[in-house]
Design a protein around this nucleic acid. Structure first.
Lengths: 109, 109
DNA sequence: CGGTCATTTAACCCTCCCGTTAATTAACGG
DNA sequence: CCGTTAATTAACGGGAGGGTTAAATGACCG
């Protein structure tokens, strides 16, 4: 699980972390501010932040004793870029057309 | 980790599973066909398929002793829909503009 | 300097994930 | 039937993930 995309998806696979990202979309925040809505300990939040930072989804800056986190959406762009390859499968119409074309192609030879 | 989105992202967080999806984009395939490119045992593949099925990313049909898998991209649409909320952060220009507007707003009052 | 606040690290659980091999189920074909 | 092929289930092990509490770090402040 050492590849970049896996790390990104794994980071997103936790509701707490996604909620943290949602919060950061409204602006930077410190660890305690981020922890406030959740019913889990501060060390747990601290680790979630480390996971997000590791995935490149946030960056962190320290000023005095506060460390504020900042949303970095670049990895999300990478993730959607990967999914983009499958976009044609989302469209029912395309799927039906595609199946139809495949059937034709198999009947030909 | 019971929510739908988490299950989807978790399923995508494995390179083998993403490779299986890529293979299925070219058409249905049986378990042994899907296992062929990988250096892992058949039971392992079988479980990966169960994870993908659980996430709704594939559907399966049985004909005789073969069980073929079929790509279902619906969940990918859901996942990108979630990420879509952050699209504005991908664009550097927007980010700079956004920061600028925020600065203005803070200077006002 | 001593206290206090913000955050991280350490140490420890427990559960889930990914892999293995061995055994089991299911269906076909002589 | 029996053997073969396809796939899953069972049982196990190692390691990662998410949580906890207690202790350590770092920076402000009186």
């Amino acid at each position: 699980m050492t590849d970049r995309l896996s790390v990104i998806f794994a980071a997103l696979a936790d509701p707490t972390r996604r909620a943290i990202l949602a919060r950061l979309a409204e602006g930077e925040a410190t660890v305690t501010e981020l922890a406030e809505p959740f019913d889990i300990s501060l060390p747990a939040i601290s680790r979630h932040l480390k996971v997000l930072e590791n995935a490149g989804l946030i960056s962190r800056s320290r000023s005095a004793q506060w460390r504020s986190s900042r949303l970095e959406a670049g990895p999300l762009r990478e993730a959607t870029a990967w999914m983009e390859r499958y976009r044609r499968f989302w469209d029912e119409n395309f799927a039906r057309l595609d199946a139809h074309l495949k059937r034709l192609q198999e009947e030909k030879p």
